[in-house]
Design a protein around this nucleic acid. Structure first.
Lengths: 254, 254
DNA sequence: GATATTCCTGCATTATTAAGTAAAATCACA
DNA sequence: TGTGATTTTACTTAATAATGCAGGAATATC
């Protein structure tokens, strides 16, 4: 294995697990501890990580980073989420996906009528614990950490037993011809199951997500009923979506 | 765990609960008390905290606010939870129940080895999202708001497909002859399913819960393997439990 | 004031690192 | 293709750092 390969592998591991040990790296990379130390020393000098006795740590501690990221509310996402709320009707059973936009949706759900929320996200569930008008159903299964949601066979099986009036998806890539797509295959499958069980598919996406595509396809654009986005979106792109039967909702500007 | 990791964890705990004890840190961090003392001494020299006999305190006056905000952390429950941590072994699959004591357990799980956590509580799940060494499985189902946990037929079905090395239950009533009991029938059934699937049953209960009984029986005391409690518990009561084969663990005082 | 914790000091043990050197691989250039 | 320079890696040894343990000192608790 070449030096730059090792370096990127070390950095990948670091961001994945938050710490690396020199001794372990030596085994994992198949080189001597000396080489690992030289690598770590180099990466430290390049400010790519923080060298400490016994191994190395990321520059900013992951937890803090996440907390900050989590506490700061993106106003754009919040506006998109707010614009989607009128689509919820009394007595419905809706699914709310994981992701920051959907979390915003969860934080702003109506309190003046009753409905049921199903979610694969522990964060969304936690947010809804104290809404007395909401019947909350958690989807079970292995929690996929990067997306903070339950997914996989168990989750899919549970989804297939539920019929949703609508599902609210915080998409990460929506393309006119390629449809909805996402970076992880299991995530794609679980989202596809959800869509299969939903009367209406409602996607929440800021202009940054439109016209993009990712690795694993979830469904074609035709399956989508609503797209809630913002006024920065390209009108041509939006008309392409409209041609495929998607009802477009633009959120307020401020 | 690397030294700087310990340091940031100590500081994080400090800002969360407003005080740390050397002896507790030793358990939480998996190192000797000497090492903890050296850590505290270092952090004190770096003006990151104030060292005091028995532990350490935050420096800033804003800690007053912090303490107010996080006053909900019951130190008694935290100590009981800490005493249960050594019962977790590498590679195990454990279930962590809902409830404040179990939430404390979740907040203090070891980070230096891998294991799997299954939980019906969105709060526990949210807490564990950032533990990279923990494989997290959420139990799905209707969320029972008063207990903040998934329960019912769907949940029970999912439980029956999993075998737990041990389950950690934050009991609300444990009586020598009546066993474990609880106020809601569905909760009782779900907990019974969990116990059925567990190799070891570990109960966490402050002295306030012992000798009490509630409406719906979960299981007899004989099914319980460990009772982790505090030194305020009535010794006679404890010996009655011990007679039924329960291993009693008393948490540290203070 | 007695007792029990908690703390500090020195020391032994272990793990980790640094420095120096040699072998191997890679590269530059004829 | 061959030769020497350069880089990269591995090995050895000495130094350093981190940790845990055992005692006596300090501190808190009753």
């Amino acid at each position: 294995m070449l030096q730059p390969e090792r370096h990127s592998k070390i950095l990948a591991l670091l961001s994945q697990v938050g710490r690396v040990y020199a001794a372990e790296l030596s085994v994992q990379l198949g080189v001597s501890e000396d080489t690992v130390r030289r690598d770590l020393k180099l990466l430290d000098e390049q400010k790519q990580l923080r060298r400490v006795h016994g191994g190395a740590l990321p520059l900013q501690h992951e937890n803090q980073e996440y907390r900050e990221r989590h506490e700061e509310v993106d106003p754009l996402k919040q506006r998109v989420a707010l614009a989607a709320i009128p689509l919820i009707k009394e007595g419905q059973t809706i699914l709310i996906d994981s992701g920051s936009t959907c979390l915003q949706l969860a934080m702003n759900l109506p309190t003046d009528f009753n409905f049921t929320v199903v979610t694969p996200s522990p964060l969304v569930a936690t947010q809804l614990i104290h809404h007395n008008n909401i019947e909350l159903i958690m989807l079970g299964g292995k929690v996929f950490k990067p997306a903070v949601m339950a997914l996989g066979a168990t989750t899919n099986a549970m989804i297939r037993k539920i019929h949703f009036d609508s599902c609210f998806l915080g998409v990460c890539a929506l393309h006119p011809s390629q449809g909805l797509s996402i970076g992880h295959i299991d995530e794609a499958e679980t989202l596809a199951s959800i869509i299969e069980q939903s009367e209406q598919v409602i996607t929440l996406a800021s202009y940054l997500k439109l016209g993009k595509m990712s690795t694993h396809k979830i469904c074609s654009a035709r399956k989508i009923d609503y797209l809630v986005t913002d006024s920065n979106s390209d009108p041509k792109l939006l008309s392409l979506f409209a041609e495929q039967g998607i009802d477009i909702k633009i959120c307020a500007d401020r």
